[in-house]
Design a binder for these strands. Structure first.
Length: 671
DNA sequence: AGGCCTCGAGTTCC
DNA sequence: CTCGAGGCCT
């Protein structure tokens, strides 16, 4: 027998403690203290360890527990029809394997030309209920429980408006469905709870489950619950002959059926397409979806395929990628930005979140680290904010290794390349490297200088900048413009073609508009918008350079702080010298002016991917016509232009009833 | 003083 | 996308 390493034993014990605690919070206290899918990662880790070291399995381990044991306080009901669960598949390959098994079986039984088709139905993330109707009247509602015995929640389910008390015909049926709470309903509920000082809920699914399990139906009645019925387990009438007809039959009886999120599909490719489409758009719905249930459509084939011990062979749940998972923090590293701001970044054990492998996540600043109390070695829950940027949501303190120390910001940052001294920015939560000669900052400023919104030099990116700096070929911006093809040829990865491309790229950008130059200079407080405002106001660099703080404040959006920052930058001797040198090699043009005013006074927010032009091009076209482009939706926004797979800005637009333009409508408006 | 609305700065992965 | 803060209006 393999000897169990002590750290594995320790981890297993801690995992059990953690899982038990979250289970208690959820089931007994009715509190959401961790996302259920993050808890799944922990359970999975425990199960894997126990499988590797079977001697660690104990009878009280959470892995040995039967799921969904009935709670005390509710009458128990035995289900008259067995409650199956679905086998899960997580990717296309597994789904195709399922399809092959199905088709093989069907051919074997019904001949070579027999083929199963499918229905795909969104798998709503809520609480499953089993409803029994006698002669068309609701008799019992039960939770799934362990599959054989559930809890009698009839009184609570009766308070849900979309559950019919009486059907359109006096039939005896047993149906299954999902009780759920909408995101909007949860928001409203939280608003009311905040008013009375009660803790807010995080996840509508758990609130839905908690609401159904209230001992007082009045509480349930006050919760905005809804239901979708999706399965007919028994009927006194002849059963429909396909899954799709079953849904229509249920609807016909008066049940609320999610036909909008369901479809009859000819083959597995169509199922995959259905899944991919919903993956992109599911977050716009009010309900939570955790996957697609794929069922063989033909009842005849379903019956032939039958059941395994716990699940039907004719159906699977094709899950969407988890959006919150747990992983381990291997290290916390400081990054130095171009203005010297220090940003702590967590280096993580690589893990798949929402379909993408993530190995780093920002911790923003010192306050955020302290709030979360993240330590090296910690197990953390991470998610991708707005499905893009990874972030640490919470720490799982039960899984903290003994001796893990609280993270302390260092007093010095030698890696900045200067003298390494840092200070906390007054009145802010950031630390800044204040070394005058910081090489790290110089590097970041160079990245920014050649970047898309500044000089936009083709053929010179961050990697090339690194090499140029390391080889000592450049120290000041001006040096870029005297580089020769020979200089590039000495660098790794450069041959004649790429060297020529780099030199040409630099040459092509030696004429710039004033706004781009200002963006490129990394003047604190001056970003894209302010640079454009300044350029438009002063037109020439000379006018801006000589401007007093008072004159600067005349510019829209420039107040004391920004004006002083600009003034100080132009007074600094090093900056002056650097700028003079740079100007010897470049030509500065007045900023582009709007050529029309068809969009004057209108403000736009762009979201999603447009098919005929990039977002930058779209923004340019808006500005050309006198309109403005901002990044956040507010009441003042005139239009939100939504492209493919638009994100949260679209939701925000709907919330504030800001008009939304399709790409087509937008192009029409431009014309 | 407080509450918008904007902006700047920093971030990840494909 | 998030956070924090500057600017400006009420």
């Amino acid at each position: 027998m393999a000897r169990v390493p002590p750290e594995v034993k320790d981890r297993v014990l801690r995992l059990r403690t953690a899982i038990e605690k979250y289970r208690y919070d959820y089931h007994v206290l009715d509190q959401e203290t961790i996302a259920s899918e993050a808890l799944d990662t922990l359970k999975h880790e425990l199960a894997t360890l126990e499988a590797t070291y079977p001697e660690l399995v104990t009878s009280d381990s959470p892995t040995q527990r039967v799921a969904g044991e009935p709670l005390p306080g509710f009458k128990k009901v035995s289900h008259t029809v067995p409650q199956w669960s679905f086998n899960d598949v997580f990717d296309e390959e597994e789904l195709r394997a399922f399809d092959e098994r199905v088709q093989k079986n069907v051919r074997a039984a019904f001949g070579n030309s027999a083929r199963a088709t499918y229905t795909a139905e969104l798998k709503i993330d809520g609480l499953k209920v089993v409803l029994t109707y006698n002669k068309g009247v609701l008799d019992t509602a039960a939770t799934r429980g362990d599959g054989r015995v559930g809890e009698d929640v009839t009184m609570n389910v009766r308070t849900i408006k979309s559950v019919p008390r009486k059907l359109t015909r006096p039939v005896d049926v047993v149906v299954e469905g999902e009780v759920w709470m909408g995101k909007k309903g949860l928001k409203e509920l939280n608003r009311l709870r905040a008013k009375t000082g009660e803790a807010e809920y995080a996840n509508p699914r758990n609130v839905a489950a908690g609401s159904i399990r209230q001992l007082d139906p009045k509480i349930t009645a006050a919760r905005p619950l809804d239901v979708f019925i999706y399965d007919l387990a028994y009927s006194s009438e002849p059963a429909p002959q396909s899954q799709w007809d079953e849904l229509l039959y249920l609807r016909d009886l008066g049940f609320k059926v999610n036909t909008y999120g369901s479809k009859q599909l000819p083959d597995i490719n169509a199922v995959i397409y259905f899944w991919q489409t919903w993956l992109k758009t599911k977050d716009r719905e009010d309900f939570l979806v955790d996957g697609v249930v794929v069922k063989v459509n033909e009842r005849l084939y379903q019956e032939r395929l039958g059941y395994t011990g716990k699940a039907p062979r004719f159906a699977v749940a094709f899950k969407f990628p988890a959006e919150q998972v747990t992983t381990v923090v291997n290290d916390i590293v400081l990054q130095i930005g171009r203005t010297g701001i220090l940003t702590p970044v967590a280096h993580l054990a690589p893990v798949t979140v929402a379909g993408v492998v993530v190995s780093r996540a920002t911790l923003h600043n010192e306050d955020q680290i302290n709030r979360l109390d993240v330590r090296v070695g910690d197990t953390v829950v991470i998610q991708r904010a707005g499905d893009v940027i990874p972030e640490v949501v919470q720490v799982v303190p039960e899984l903290r290794p003994t001796g893990a120390k609280r993270y302390v910001f260092p007093k010095k940052v030698p890696e900045c390349g200067g003298d390494g001294s840092i200070e906390r920015v007054p009145g802010a939560s950031a630390w800044r490297c204040v070394a005058k000669n910081s090489l790290a900052q110089q590097r970041r400023r160079f990245y920014h200088f050649v970047g898309k919104h500044a000089f936009d030099i083709d053929g010179v990116g961050a990697r090339t900048v690194d090499q140029l700096l390391d080889a000592g070929l450049v120290t000041h911006y001006a040096d870029l413009f005297t580089l020769t093809e020979g200089d590039f040829l000495g660098l790794e990865g450069f041959a004649e073609v790429s060297a020529k491309k780099a030199v040409d790229g630099i040459k092509a950008r030696s004429t710039v508009t004033l706004d781009r130059l200002l963006i490129a200079l990394s003047i604190p407080q001056v970003g894209e918008e302010t640079a454009r405002d300044l350029a438009r106001h002063f037109t020439t660099l000379g006018a801006l350079e000589g401007a007093s703080v008072e004159t600067l404040k005349e510019v829209e959006g420039v107040g004391d702080i920004v004006a002083n920052s600009i003034g100080a930058w132009f007074r600094d001797a090093d900056n002056k010298r650097g700028l003079r040198e740079l100007l010897k090699h470049i030509v500065v043009l007045a900023p582009e002016r709007a050529t029309a005013s068809t969009l004057a006074g209108m403000s736009f927010v762009l979201t999603g991917t447009l098919s005929t032009l990039s977002r930058d091009e779209a923004a340019h076209k808006i500005r050309e016509r006198g309109g403005t482009v901002t990044s956040t939706v507010s009441k003042k926004t005139s239009y939100v232009v939504a492209g493919e797979s638009a994100g949260s800005k679209l939701d925000r637009a709907r919330e504030l009833t800001v008009p939304v333009l399709s790409e087509e409508a937008f192009l029409k408006l431009l014309a």
